[in-house]
Amino acid sequence: MADRAERFAGSLPAPSLILDAGCGPGRDLARLRTYGHVVRGVDLNPVFVAMANAHAPTSVGDLREVGRRFPAGTFDGIWASASLVHLDTADAVDVLGQFAELLRPGGRMYVCLKASGSTGWLDEPDGRRWYTVWDPDEFAAAVADAGFAVDGVDRGPYVEVWATRKWGMSGAW
Results as ranks from 00 to 15, higher is better:
Ala142Pro: 08
Leu113Ser: 11
Glu160Asn: 05
Thr164Gln: 12
Val85Ser: 02
Val93Cys: 07
Glu124Ala: 15
Trp134Glu: 01
Gly106Trp: 03
Asp151Cys: 07
Gln98Cys: 04
Arg31Val: 03
Gly107Ala: 08
Ala5Cys: 04
Arg69Lys: 01
Cys112Gln: 11
Ala142Ser: 08
Trp130Ile: 06
His37Pro: 03
Asp135Arg: 05
Ala54Asn: 05
Glu6Arg: 07
Gly24Tyr: 07
Gly127Tyr: 15
Val93Ile: 05
Ile78Gln: 13
Phe139Gln: 01
Ala149Ile: 09
Ala100Arg: 12
Asp62Val: 00
Ala82Met: 01
Val153Gly: 14
Asn53Ile: 13
Gly120Ile: 11
Asp91Gly: 02
Phe99Ala: 06
Arg155Glu: 07
Pro46Ala: 09
Asp20Phe: 01
Asp88Ala: 05
Arg69Ser: 01
Asn45Gln: 03
Arg129Glu: 12
Leu44Ala: 05
Ala144Pro: 14
Pro105Gln: 09
Gly26Asp: 11
Ala2Asp: 10
Ala80Met: 11
Ala172Phe: 11
Ala52Gln: 02
Glu6Ile: 07
Leu84Glu: 00
Val85Trp: 01
Pro125Val: 10
Ala21Ser: 09
Thr164Cys: 13
Asp3Gly: 04
Asp123Glu: 14
Ala72Thr: 04
Gly120Ala: 15
Phe139Thr: 04
Arg33Cys: 10
Arg108Asp: 09
Trp79Ile: 02
Ala30Ile: 10
Ala144Cys: 09
Trp121Pro: 04
Asp20Leu: 13
Phe99Pro: 03
Cys23His: 08
Leu122Arg: 13
Pro105Asp: 14
Ser118His: 08
Lys114Val: 01
Leu102Ser: 04
Asp3Ala: 03
Ile18Asn: 08
Asp62Gly: 00
Met51Gly: 11
Gly168Asp: 15
Lys114Asp: 04
Arg104Ala: 12
Gly147Lys: 13
Trp121Ala: 03
Leu84Asn: 11
Arg68Glu: 15
Ile18Met: 13
Arg4Thr: 13
Val153Tyr: 00
Ser16Cys: 10
Pro125Ile: 15
Arg104Gln: 14
Lys166Pro: 01
Trp121Gln: 09
Trp79Met: 03
Leu63Lys: 09
Tyr35Ala: 08
Val93Gln: 05
Val38Pro: 01
Val143Gly: 14
Thr89Phe: 07
Ala21Gln: 03
Thr74Asn: 15
Val60Gly: 02
Asp145Cys: 12
Val153Ala: 14
Ala80His: 05
Trp173Val: 05
Asn53Ser: 06
Tyr35Phe: 15
Ala5Ser: 09
Arg165Glu: 14
Asp137Trp: 09
Ala92Asp: 02
Ala92Ile: 03
Leu17Pro: 10
Glu138Ile: 00
Asp20Lys: 02
Leu44Thr: 00
Arg68Trp: 04
Gly36Lys: 12
Arg27Lys: 06
Arg155Met: 06
Ala21Phe: 11
Gly127Leu: 13
Phe99Tyr: 06
Arg108Asn: 06
Tyr131Thr: 03
Gly127Val: 15
Ala9Cys: 15
Leu96Ser: 08
Leu63Ser: 02
Ala14His: 13
Glu124Thr: 14
Asp94Ala: 02
His37Glu: 02
Tyr35Lys: 14
Ala30His: 00
Asp151Gly: 15
Trp134Leu: 02
Ala146Met: 10
His37Ala: 12
Met51Asp: 15
Ile18Ser: 05
Gly120Cys: 13
Arg4Pro: 05
Thr34Leu: 07
